[in-house]
């Protein structure tokens, strides 16, 4: 019996890379070396510079930077702007993803492209358009000035510019995910008598929570770090309308390099935290997918 089914032995692929489908060891080593060098030069060194320069005057000097009232105000303003922009864009992202992945209607691709648009437009334009509308020479500018409401060179302008620049992030994260997950579970819940909100909170949200979290955290990182758009609408009033990135620019141009890098290092830590959460979220999402496939006894579709 054993003889009858004896065929050519097939080696497990991952453990022993086939020579036919792998490069020679030397080539592999050189390619890995080039990638390491490229990453070290472009990604690792910039990170290192930020932290080294931030601490170049010592740890006490580092913390003293944040006691300066202008710096403290910049940190506060950044949190306020992101605190308004991110929830609004999250709400929009959820609504957009629900309407675009749960229903089929004409104009869907156009709508997806339009949602993407702010990502490909120069951030400077993201500030310029609000100056054209609300600025002193703008459409509504005179009316707002007559009523003593400041939009440009004030918090509302900064929030608007931040919303524009981070507009697509949550939606972009959710649309492919919800598209891939399909609507069967929601339809099952519906047939069992659940209403719309129940379906969203109990069926959809648990399925998309990691993708949603990643979208929010990326949106937040970009909101706190936005420079070009906010630079146009803020007016650079020190201690009033400067966000952290704008404050970095001012400190840097005043040759206060250690202070500039100290503020930059906070944003850097935020960026690194974003990457950690992203990596973890992706890992969890993969796990969930594999688990679902195992319990359903279906082959994994990637």
């Amino acid at each position: 019996m054993a003889g009858a089914i004896a065929t050519f032995p097939t080696a497990p692929r991952a453990a022993h890379p086939d020579r036919a489908t792998a490069e020679p060891l030397v080539v592999r080593a050189v390619l890995i070396g080039i990638v390491f060098a490229f990453f070290a030069l472009f990604l690792f060194l910039p990170l290192l510079v930020v932290f080294m320069e931030a601490l170049s005057k010592g740890v006490p000097a580092f913390f003293a930077v944040f006691e300066d009232s202008a710096t403290a105000h910049a940190v506060k303003l950044t949190f306020i702007a992101a605190g308004i922009a991110v929830p609004l864009n999250t709400l929009f992202g959820l609504a957009a993803a629900w309407s675009l992945t749960r229903f089929d209607f004409p104009g869907r691709p156009v709508l997806i492209t339009l949602i993407d648009l702010p990502l490909w437009v120069s951030p400077v334009i993201g500030g310029l358009i609000y100056v054209l509308i609300f600025g002193a020479q703008g459409w509504f500018g005179p009316w707002f000035i007559d009523h003593d409401i400041r939009i440009i060179f004030a918090l509302p302008g900064i929030v608007l510019a931040t919303i524009f620049v981070t507009f697509p992030f949550v939606a972009r994260g959710l649309i492919p995910l919800m598209q891939a997950q399909g609507t069967q579970e929601e339809e099952a819940a519906l047939s069992l008598g659940a209403n719309g909100w129940q379906i969203f909170w109990r069926v959809t949200l648990p399925k998309i929570k990691w993708g949603l979290l990643y979208g929010i955290i990326l949106c937040n990182a970009r909101a706190m770090g936005e420079f070009g758009a906010v630079s146009v609408v803020s007016g650079h009033i020190r201690g009033k309308t400067n966000t952290m990135p704008l404050h970095i620019e001012i400190l840097y141009n005043e040759y206060q390099f250690a202070a500039a890098f100290a503020v930059a290092s906070v944003l850097c830590i935020l960026a690194l935290l974003t990457l950690v959460i992203k990596t973890y979220a992706e890992w969890r999402a993969e796990q969930q997918l594999a688990e679902a496939a195992r319990t359903a006894d279906l082959p994994i579709h990637r």
């Binding site: 990326l218 990182a221 706190m224 770090g225 952290m244 840097y252 944003l267 960026a271 990457l275 950690v276």
Partner: peptide, 17 residues
Amino acid sequence: ALVDLPFALPTAVAGIA
């Protein structure tokens, strides 16, 4: 994980670094 750094890092920070 580092590949996405330029996406997450504020442009002003990248600029001064």
